[in-house]
Amino acid sequence: MATTSRGRSQDRARVAGGQDHEVKYEAKREGVPKSEVKETVKEVGNSRKKVEAKLDKK
């Protein structure tokens, strides 16, 4: 099954808290520990914008 551009952009809009590579990427990007990214995903959900906004406030 081919991935559409819509599917890819929707995927990038989310942070999969259970996927180690996604958590690691977001942690490195934000300069925070992986545990903080996982905790933030639990708090605000998996929306990348919400996760980044919450991490930026800390």
Rank of each mutant, 00 (worst) to 15 (best):
M1K: 09
M1V: 12
M1C: 12
A2M: 10
A2W: 05
T4D: 12
T4E: 04
T4V: 08
T4I: 10
S5V: 09
R6H: 07
R6P: 00
R6M: 07
R6V: 09
G7A: 12
G7P: 02
R8Y: 12
S9F: 11
S9L: 10
S9V: 11
Q10A: 15
Q10G: 14
Q10P: 01
D11F: 09
D11M: 11
D11P: 00
R12S: 11
R12G: 05
A13C: 03
A13M: 12
R14E: 11
V15M: 06
A16V: 07
A16I: 09
G17S: 04
Q19S: 13
Q19R: 13
D20F: 09
H21L: 06
H21P: 00
H21K: 10
H21Q: 11
E22T: 03
E22G: 01
E22I: 02
V23G: 01
V23F: 04
Y25S: 15
Y25C: 10
E26K: 03
A27H: 05
A27S: 08
A27E: 05
A27N: 08
A27M: 10
A27R: 10
K28E: 14
K28A: 15
K28P: 00
R29W: 10
E30S: 15
G31R: 12
P33I: 09
P33W: 07
P33K: 08
K34P: 03
S35W: 08
S35M: 08
E36F: 04
E36T: 07
E36C: 03
V37Y: 02
K38L: 11
K38C: 05
K38E: 14
K38I: 14
E39H: 02
E39Y: 00
E39N: 10
E39T: 07
E39K: 08
T40S: 08
T40Y: 04
V41F: 05
K42D: 15
E43W: 00
E43R: 03
E43M: 02
V44L: 08
V44P: 02
V44G: 01
V44C: 04
G45Q: 06
N46H: 13
N46Q: 13
N46V: 02
N46A: 03
S47P: 07
S47N: 13
S47R: 13
R48S: 10
R48A: 14
R48Q: 06
K49V: 06
K49C: 01
K50Q: 09
V51M: 03
V51E: 01
V51F: 01
E52W: 02
E52L: 14
E52N: 07
E52M: 13
E52C: 07
K54I: 08
K54W: 09
L55F: 05
L55E: 10
D56S: 11
D56Q: 10
D56Y: 01
D56L: 04
K57Y: 07
K58Q: 10
K58E: 12
